[in-house]
Design a protein around this nucleic acid. Sequence first.
DNA 1: TTGTAAGCGTTATCAG
DNA 2: CTGATAACGCTTACAA
Lengths: 337, 337
Amino acid sequence: MATLADVARHAGVAASTVSYVLSGKRTVSASTRRRVERSIELLNYHPHAGAQALASSRSNIVALVVPLRSDLYVPVMMEIAIAVTTTARTFGHDVLLLTNDEGAEGIRRVAVSARADAMILMDVSMDDDRIPMLLDVGIPAVLIGIPSDTRGLTCVDLDFAAAGELCVEHLTGLGHRELAFIGEAEAVYQRHSGFAERTLRGISGGAAQRGVRLVHRPCEGSHEAAAGAVTRILEERPGTTGLIVQNEAIIPAVLSVLRTTGRTVPEDVSIVALCPDQVAEQTSPHLSSVTIPAEEMGRRAVELVMQRLENGRAGEVVLLPPALTVRASSAPAPLGR
Amino acid sequence: MATLADVARHAGVAASTVSYVLSGKRTVSASTRRRVERSIELLNYHPHAGAQALASSRSNIVALVVPLRSDLYVPVMMEIAIAVTTTARTFGHDVLLLTNDEGAEGIRRVAVSARADAMILMDVSMDDDRIPMLLDVGIPAVLIGIPSDTRGLTCVDLDFAAAGELCVEHLTGLGHRELAFIGEAEAVYQRHSGFAERTLRGISGGAAQRGVRLVHRPCEGSHEAAAGAVTRILEERPGTTGLIVQNEAIIPAVLSVLRTTGRTVPEDVSIVALCPDQVAEQTSPHLSSVTIPAEEMGRRAVELVMQRLENGRAGEVVLLPPALTVRASSAPAPLGR
DNA sequence: TTGTAAGCGTTATCAG
DNA sequence: CTGATAACGCTTACAA
């Protein structure tokens, strides 16, 4: 492998000049620039990442911490991870993948060893125990998700409260007066996942404000759990005509159970889902839904973290406004009874 | 941040001694070791990753190239990625996430800049254009998936041919004489995805060998596509009683369509899926299936690549034997007609 | 068992 | 506009 010194010698310039040609941090005359570039080409030179990291104290790596729980919807995680990676590349950064089983210790490890110069965290809970560590080591970071105390933090997330309320608004606008919310697994609420709590809050608030009835049922990812939840809702509140579903994994199961029990969507029951568009369009009928803007969340997270890397200041909280797409699963509430 | 020199000074030893205490590459007397460790603790010392990489020409990073297509089943990809990451950690390595949109160039970039010292590739096609680059730059690599020419390569994958044949064997063993195989999207075959081709080959061969009829229908991920495929199969071959499904995304749709058209599973039609256990157990009825051992594939890939990093030699191809779990979706073929 | 010292390949400061 | 050169923090022969 050719080194910078080799290139300098070959081009007949100083090592620093080669470095500056590469970084553009000072002006270089067109002629020497050309000579240097030619030598780089000829010698097939590529800077050594480790040497750069050492000399510049910049690794050009951003770490991404992904959850390894299986009770969250994987495709959204993956889409965020991919958006983070491709966006990071546009800033000349690579992405280091960390799993959450290392916990706060993983954050320390990567920060203190200077393996990464910034960090993005997914699946943030209201009182996330990684946050103290983050603030302690002082690495620029962005959270995808919003904890209860955001002081000194930069966060980005879908405005899940508004998203929940939007679902309620849509259904009540269609005349539905009894709603049910099939949410995430109980464990998700128990660990105070911000997005789950906020969604619930938005839905509850929206229902209260509009004077419509609401039940909330957490639900595991299995067909059986979904069947149980739907059955119980329809037994306890037979007047229920509007269903809001947040656990993407059980969407097919919910539809299947409704069909089995003789309810037609949307004539008897309307459904609104909180899920990626792709999921909403994979069922029959296609679901009216508030999309999870995974790509945008990943992209914005990188943009924010790069900004922090430049001018240092933190404290921004970006809430992405929800958008509801009406598809075939929601319609005016059936008349009378 | 404390440096190794700081620790050496504080402990009253040479820098090299500190280094050797950390790496264990030469014996250090218990007493000085203790002194050094105490200083490390006290000064809260952590080695600088870039400096280590420069001095040792080892980055302790393995790059993982993930596909960004959406026509492959994402949860499997994610499970592999997570298994790779956690296993890499047990070898003291971190994982750099690369997306395939950088193509072969991304491989070169990471290899020549010494950003990673090894590489794992997912979603390998029979004539993958990244392979020449891999051999050219000479970075130790492991493919998850098996190309047609494996010379000089190390690969690991489920034995998809055997898996396909196992499905056929199971169904014919139950007396089914007319089978249909609902496969991956057309595009997957067109780019010669190894796993898709091998599965098809295993199924075709198994069917021919046992003298049973077989149709193969590629299928996109949408409900509509699945409905179309199932409908067409049952129209053209009304005697079909055994279904093999490889595209995990459409499993709910296939079940839904069968129910809609009045066929009961497994009384009228038996189904065997090639999918993760989790997916097979998320439907009603639970599906008999050959599992995709995602965790094992990721883990083995890392083990193999670490082995290559140590003793250099390549050339191993590891085929994981398939295992079929009988659940509620397969039963003896209906009698006569 | 331990110390010395020469790199590793860049960056960035200081001169010119 | 360009050149020299001292860091950057660690590893690893080579000596002792």
